[in-house]
């Protein structure tokens, strides 16, 4: 565990909690892509199946349970409790275009051809693109609430910090995981455009709105 890994995890946790609180406090999930949230719930579910097979540390187990629990709570709030506020018309990204290729790729390129390992690989690949329905929704509506941009920033920052973690681990531990690294780079690159808008607009007190 190094500082990048820890801050990455905390950034991820912050993102998840920001989103939950935003929906809970405003009693609305307007502007939030339910599809992205379903994909994240699927990511955590398929990645953390090792909760049943191996114990790593109390930290590891607690974080996994919190991530999974929050992911399903978010999906519940969007599709059940505050369903009336869900903006389904703008959440029109076709997720099968992500899930099917990612499923195929995880069967073809993995560390080991076993069910748990393939599901883990699937989760890594899927996570790298799971935000696309959300970004698509923002590009469609042309704007995002400021609190939503804070959520996206923390979520993007988390994988960027993991990249630094992997650089650190390569130099100091000789460790690298090519699948996680390539997917992590893809994931971070997808946020770059957003990072730019966040820094140039949101941090200067302006609302994030895209030119028509």
């Amino acid at each position: 565990m190094n500082i990048f890994r820890l801050t990455g995890d905390l950034s991820h946790l912050a993102a998840i909690i920001i989103l939950l609180l935003k929906i809970w406090k405003s009693r609305s999930c307007a502007g939030i892509s339910g599809k992205s949230q379903i994909l994240f719930a699927l990511v955590f579910t398929t990645r953390y199946l090792d909760l049943f097979t191996s114990f790593i540390s109390l930290y590891n187990t607690c974080m996994k349970l919190i991530y999974i629990g929050c992911a399903y709570a978010t999906v519940y709030l969007i599709y059940a409790k505050f369903r009336a506020t869900y903006d389904g018309n703008h959440d029109s990204f076709r997720v099968e275009f992500l899930v099917v290729p990612v499923g195929g790729l995880s069967v073809l390129i993995n560390h080991d051809f076993s069910p748990l390992e393939i599901l883990w690989t699937f989760s890594i690949y899927l996570e790298s693109v799971a935000i696309l329905p959300q970004l698509f929704m923002i590009s469609k509506t042309g704007e995002a609430e400021t609190i939503t941009t804070h959520y996206l920033f923390c979520l993007g920052l988390y994988r960027a910090l993991y990249l630094f973690n992997w650089i650190w681990r390569f130099y100091f531990e000789g460790f690298f995981d090519m699948i996680a690294i390539v997917a992590g780079v893809v994931q971070t690159v997808l946020y770059c455009d957003f990072f730019y808008l966040y820094v140039t607009k949101v941090l200067k007190g302006k609302k994030l709105s895209l030119p028509a």
């Binding site: 974080m63 996994k64 991530y67 560390h111 080991d112 993991y162 973690n165 995981d177 699948i179």
Partner: peptide, 10 residues
């Protein structure tokens, strides 16, 4: 050299 994944990372 093939390194396997780290089960500790989230």
């Amino acid at each position: 050299e093939e390194t396997t994944k780290d089960k500790d990372e989230l």
